[in-house]
Every structure is written in structure tokens, then in C-alpha cells.
Amino acid sequence: MTDLFVNGAAGLWVDRGHGAVRELAWSADEAEVRALAVRLIARGGRHVDEATPAVDVRLGRGIRVHVVLPPVSTAGTLVSVRIPRAAGRSLDDLAAGGMLDDRQRERLTAAVAARENLLITGAGGTGKTTMLAALLSLAPAHERLVVIEDVSELRVEHPHVVALEARQPNLEGTGRIGLDALLREALRMRPDRLVVGECRGAELRELLAALNTGHDGGAGTLHANSLADVPARLEALGATAGLTADAVARQTASAFDLVLHLERVEGRRRLAQVGWFVVEDGRLGIEAL
């Protein structure tokens, strides 16, 4: 089971790896769903109400809960739960499950050993976090991995992993600690491998700067619908951080050695393409292996 979705009084949907399927035996009215949402968010140390109608929290060791209340949601209280695997999957496990072939497995194993910087891309639910965790698990035991996430999800089978999690603002609108600030703190923690769970905004500038100043062996993920869409996504994120297209192109091409693009087709996740960045007339481009 990977995801649970409660759509107000309309019911519960469960994704067991082949798409969301409605659980016909489960029912609750809107008041019960809202009460459930409030309790779950409170368990994560936050508060959800009309003033803060959309909230994301982590429960336990990586269960991620997202809630949206009416009137932002027009279908009643929405609860989305992402459930991590009880144990991480190795690269061999992913290969055995058909996510990548033997040639790709050998190339990725060599990339981790050579401390290449990796960017894993794909749409939601394609297995980016699973792939990232499997690759990081290949890092030598003496290395220190510093992982930075908006909401902690990565479960890496490695003896020396430290994690930093972003903090949302409090009810007064203060106290926020974003990924960009955490990246700056992480650089003071002597990471052997610097990892960003997902690049979403201004933290891209800090990550590119770090990977261009001797921090090799790093990795991150990025939402993108195809390998060809990755340069445009990075340019858009760079713009939010005040970077020009030319700066994004030159820094990205220098920072990342490989791009791994994942797809999910008919419920099956796979490594669809592997590529690398190039600079073409001052703009970021990408070429596939």
C-alpha cells in the first residue's frame, strides 16, 4: 500500500501499487472526515482550520499526511496519506522488479561509486524517492549523508544518515525555515553527500552553488513529465531564485553528471531514460543516452 485518499463524504480510495481503488466498505460523513483530518494534523504538531486550510505533516517514521479543508476544497475535507515502505528497497530489488535493467543497474552502481551528482526526475508517483533511497544505500559506510526535505520521506539503508526537515510558519506567520536555509546549514555539517529530497524553488540556487564548489556525490529529485521537459522546469525554478537562464544552464551542466527519468505506465514504474545536461546557445539542453 502506497497511498490513501479520503475525499470528504465521497469515500476512501487506496493505492496498492496499481492505481487508486475505492474501498466500498468504508464510509464516513463530512463531520467525521474533518474530525479525522484535524486529529491527524494535530498528531504531526500542527493545526488546521479555516485560517490555515491546507497543511502537510509527517507522522512517525515518514508517513506523510496532507489535508485541505473547505472552502478551498469544493468536495469536502480532503485527506491524502503517503505511506513509506517498511524497509528500503535495494537497487537489486528494483532491477528484479523490472524498474531497471542490468545495464542500467551497472551504470548507476558505477555512478554512485564514482561520486557522480545525480538528478532523478519524473511525474508524481513514479518512484523518485524509492530510486533515490536505493542509490544512496550504495554509498560507502564511512560517508556522512545529509538529507534535506520539505517533509521527511526518504528511508535510506545506511549507517550514517542525518536528516533536516523544513518548518512551516506558525499561526502568527513566523518561524518558517525553508529548504534554502537548511541547505546553507547542511554545508556546515561536513556532508560527504548532500541530498535534497525535491527541488521546488529557491533552494535550487543553493544546491547548484554547493555542487559546483566541490560537493560531489550529491543527488536530488525534480518533478518533470519527460526528460525533454527537465531544462524548462529548472529554468522556471531558477527564475524564482533570481537566476538567469544562462546562469541556470552553466551551473546545472556543471553540477549534475546524470539525469535519471522515471515513468509509471499501467502501474509499473521504470527508469525510462538516462541523460546529461548540455549548454546550447546559452540555454540549458539535455541529451539522452
Rank of each mutant, 00 (worst) to 15 (best):
A95P: 00
D180R: 11
R283H: 15
E32M: 12
G98C: 02
V112Y: 00
P169Y: 08
L183W: 00
G8H: 10
L91T: 12
V146G: 01
A123P: 05
R16L: 15
A114N: 11
Q251Y: 00
D101K: 02
E116M: 12
A239M: 13
L171F: 14
E206I: 02
A86D: 13
V156E: 05
A113W: 12
L40Y: 06
V248A: 03
R250C: 03
M189S: 11
V146Y: 01
L222Q: 02
A133C: 11
P71S: 11
G122A: 09
G98Q: 02
N212K: 07
V259F: 02
T74N: 05
Q273W: 13
A249H: 00
R85C: 12
G242A: 12
G282H: 05
I41C: 00
R184K: 13
Q104P: 00
G88V: 13
A249P: 01
A272H: 14
D246G: 10
L204S: 01
G238N: 03
Q104E: 01
M1W: 11
L289P: 10
D150V: 04
S90E: 11
A25E: 15
T221C: 04
E50S: 14
V81L: 12
A166Q: 06
L100Y: 01
S80G: 15
A255D: 01
A210K: 02
G44K: 05
G11E: 01
H160I: 07
L182Y: 01
H142S: 14
M131C: 13
L262M: 12
G238H: 02
P71D: 05
P53Y: 06
V33I: 14
H261F: 10
L208T: 02
R115P: 08
K128L: 04
R269Q: 12
D101I: 00
P70Y: 07
P191V: 03
L164S: 09
I63L: 11
A186T: 01
V196I: 09
T130Q: 07
R167I: 09
T213N: 11
D229I: 03
A75Q: 15
Q168Y: 05
E172D: 15
L100E: 00
A54I: 14
R39Q: 14
V72N: 14
D180H: 09
L164N: 08
T244L: 09
R283W: 09
S27L: 10
R233G: 03
D150Y: 03
L108F: 04
G201N: 06
D93P: 09
V6K: 02
A28L: 06
A87T: 15
L243P: 01
T213K: 09
L12V: 14
D150P: 01
A236V: 08
A219T: 10
G282Y: 01
A54G: 11
A202I: 06
G127S: 08
L40Q: 02
V196R: 00
T129C: 07
V57A: 05
D101Q: 03
A224L: 08
N212C: 05
P231W: 03
A9R: 07
G44L: 10
L78S: 15
P84G: 05
I286E: 00
W276V: 06
L69P: 06
S226Y: 06
R250S: 07
G218K: 01
W276E: 13
A210D: 04
G8E: 05
G201S: 15
V162S: 10
V156C: 07
A219K: 05
R61W: 08
T240S: 13
V195M: 03
R155S: 11
L108M: 12
A51V: 13
H160Y: 15
T240W: 04
A37R: 02
P231N: 06
R115K: 13
S80I: 11
